[in-house]
């Protein structure tokens, strides 16, 4: 037999021994200051017991898979993040591991390096100014409600949605972020997404399908959109076009937390200005990497490996898990598995 499997089996079995018991119902004296969540008969599956979310907020996230917190990030912090983004666009700052992405239509027009060309920065964990976003205490305290105390920044983005060139490439197809992630369980992963200006349907706000976090991960691939679609913008292949959807109009500093299985996307930017948002996907460091071979995630894994091999100059030595271990960064608590 294969002795590498022995280690895998032992790890699975040890995992069976490590989980805490199901929450016992705890009685409180009626005159005491009891948390109302303890008296709620519902089962909570997507949030952990905490002192931050109100019962209504917790129920909303459990039911819908997302939660908007108004005015969570200050104007000053947002201005600092914008300034750092502009330095990155002018190539004054080049942190390791970061990906700078350009719109598929604009890249063909040969602009000089500037904000006009860059549509997205990914994996800025090693940029200390932008990583400050991931570690903002007011964000981390909410993240802990979903991940628990050991928090990793797994995937970060600063999105600069350009004015649509008329080819609609600024749309992001409906997708589930878990398609991109080879770690589980999904309920210990959460995205924080902060508007860096007023965002509505004119400049391409987030659109979500409430409750879809309760469903399975669906197969993703490039949609057959006329005019093309940007690199790695995989979308769900089959979804019900009549599903109810919610457009999240957000003010600068508003932050939405959402589950990695929540189906979401964004529309095109019909205005002449750029639309900016900054986001981080957090996972509990208790999560474990999984093999995506033979699953619907294999296409994105292959694409990510190709990109990583170009960047790090190695051929055939990387797998999807390695690409993640290079990039993720501890935010709070202890680094365990990820």
């Amino acid at each position: 037999m294969d002795y590498t499997r022995a280690g895998a089996r032992l790890q699975v079995l040890l995992g069976h021994l490590g989980r805490p018991s199901a929450l016992q119902i705890v009685a409180h004296p009626v005159s005491g200051p009891a948390s109302p969540a303890n008296f709620c008969p519902e089962q909570f599956q997507y949030t952990l017991d905490n002192n931050v979310l109100s019962l209504e907020q917790r129920k909303f996230y459990e039911e819908n898979g997302f939660l908007v917190i108004k005015n969570l990030v200050s104007d000053d912090d947002i201005q600092r993040f914008r300034a750092e983004f502009e330095r990155i666009c002018r190539k004054e700052v080049k942190p390791p591991g970061m990906t700078v992405m350009k719109d598929v239509a604009i890249a063909k027009q040969g602009y000089a390096p500037s904000e006009r060309v860059v549509t997205k920065i990914q994996d800025f964990q090693q940029n200390e100014e932008l990583f400050r976003y991931c570690a903002l205490p007011q964000i981390v305290k909410y993240v802990e409600c979903f991940t628990g105390p050991n928090i990793m920044a797994m995937h970060t983005m600063l999105i600069n949605k350009p004015p649509d060139s008329g080819k609609k490439t600024s749309r992001h197809p409906l997708h589930q972020d878990l398609h991109f992630f080879p770690f589980r369980p999904s309920n210990l992963i959460v995205c924080a997404w902060t508007a860096m200006e007023h965002i509505d349907r004119n400049n391409g706000c987030l659109v979500v399908l409430p409750g879809t976090h309760k469903g399975p991960l669906k197969p993703h691939d490039y949609p057959k959109w006329e005019g093309g679609v940007n690199k790695m913008y995989h979308g769900i292949q089959d979804y019900d076009p009549d599903s109810p959807r919610v457009h999240l109009v957000m003010e600068k500093g508003d932050t939405v937390f959402f589950h990695p299985l929540l189906i979401h996307g964004s529309g095109r930017n019909r205005t002449q200005g750029f639309r900016k948002a900054i986001s981080c996907h957090y996972g509990s460091s208790d999560c474990k990497y999984i093999s995506v071979k033979g699953t619907s995630q294999e296409n994105i894994a292959r694409e990510v490996i190709e990109i990583a091999e170009k960047r790090y100059g190695v051929q055939g030595a990387l797998d999807f898990e390695d690409t993640w271990k290079f990039r993720c960064r501890l935010v709070k608590g202890e680094r365990i598995n990820l």
């Binding site: 699975v12 995992g15 069976h16 589980r184 369980p185 999904s186 309920n187 399975p216």
Partner: peptide, 28 residues
């Protein structure tokens, strides 16, 4: 499954029919 879900399937259709996030832990 270890993904914390109980799923119900029908051989006549290739997709899952019901997904139940039954526990906040692996289901053995």
């Amino acid at each position: 499954s270890g993904d914390q879900t109980l799923r119900i399937w029908d051989v006549k259709t290739t997709g899952v029919r019901i997904v139940i996030p039954a526990h906040q832990a692996e289901i053995l």
